[in-house]
Design a protein around this nucleic acid. Structure first.
Ligand SMILES: [Zn+2]
Length: 295
DNA sequence: CGATTTTGACCGGCGC
DNA sequence: GCGCCGGTCAAAATCG
């Protein structure tokens, strides 16, 4: 789907056939050309997309990424920013497995709790056809675990878990105008994956979904020269979110410039799937959403 | 020059 | 069985 369409393609099976794909070298230019050739070498189809809206090649001393970000035609750029911030923040829960387990347990508890509760389906406007995918998914999902999304506000410190992540994909998901980013732990043999997506509404909110658990120590201890002992356990603080179901945790500190939009509490709270067995075998899902205030 | 991002293509599942 | 959709791959580009 992407910005325009990606209808979902399937054919073009054999990677053999010449499928030359050209793109304008200009980073900001969307012009693309695709040449589809048959095995015989004859060009069957040529697709030209986009228009060259730029002057002839020229050297740009600015990094392309910055230019892209600067373009900021859509609010998507914010997302990138968020991601970057995420990667830079240290703090992390305890590297030990126990802490993670704790967190998982907490999530599960919440999930169950909400399961009984009514499912909120705001959808003020737009999408009235069969786009009830969200609600329908939740309801109809019988024995499917997957997805435990908890919306909890917290300190930005949580965003950085201290691990190195390599982005391996980005996709637009239905029902959300913001793209979802896919990350994977850079450590070899570590199956941990992470999805980050901006909330449907309230671009300042981000939903992070962790999958699996790390089987290695933190590769990025380079932060403080001091002894890395005694971390801030309060960051995750699974116990902190007990009792009150709707922890409207507002950002205590670091919530400085709210820019144009004020702090909408909004609170999407938790939504999840109706799964009986949440964690199956070695599969552990953990999703945490939190709000980020950026200047 | 290696690590990481970018991005279209591809795959497999599921709903209709 | 087709089409939609979420997730992943991998080559090129880019960063550090
Ligand atoms: Zn890892």
């Amino acid at each position: 789907m992407a910005t325009i369409g990606e209808y979902g393609q399937k054919q073009v099976k054999s990677p053999k056939g010449s499928r030359s794909y050209y793109r304008c070298t200009y980073s900001d230019c969307c012009a693309k050309k695709i040449e589809c050739s048959n095995d015989s070498g004859n060009v069957i189809e040529i697709v030209n997309k986009g228009l060259h809206s730029h002057e002839p090649p020229r050297k740009s001393s600015f990094s392309l990424r910055e230019i892209r970000a600067a373009s900021a035609i859509t609010p998507v750029s914010e997302d990138n920013k968020v991601v970057r911030e995420t990667a830079s923040v240290p703090s992390g829960s305890d590297p030990s497995v126990s802490s993670k387990e704790n967190i998982c347990q907490t999530i599960i508890e919440r999930k169950r709790h909400f399961e009984n509760e009514a499912v909120e389906e705001p959808e003020p406007k737009r999408r009235l056809k069969k786009d009830n995918s969200q609600s329908s998914d939740f309801v109809s999902k019988p024995g499917k675990k997957h997805k435990v999304v908890v919306h909890a506000a917290g300190d930005v410190g949580i965003s950085g878990d201290g691990y190195r992540w390599r982005k391996y994909g980005q996709k637009m998901v239905k029902g959300n105008s913001n793209p979802r980013n896919y990350y994977r732990c850079t450590s070899a043999g570590c199956p941990v994956r992470k999805h980050i997506e901006t909330a449907v509404e309230n671009k300042t909110a981000v939903i992070i979904t962790y999958k699996e658990v790390h089987n290695h120590d933190m590769p990025v201890p380079k932060k403080r020269h001091g002894p890395p002992s005694s971390m801030l356990v309060a960051a995750a603080a699974p116990t902190s979110m007990r009792t009150r179901s709707d922890d409207q945790v507002n950002i205590p500190t670091s919530s400085q410039c709210s820019v144009g939009r004020e702090n909408e509490k909004q609170s999407s709270e938790a939504l999840d799937v109706g799964g009986e067995k949440v964690m199956e075998s070695a599969r552990t899902l953990l999703s945490i959403g939190f709000e980020i205030k950026q200047c």
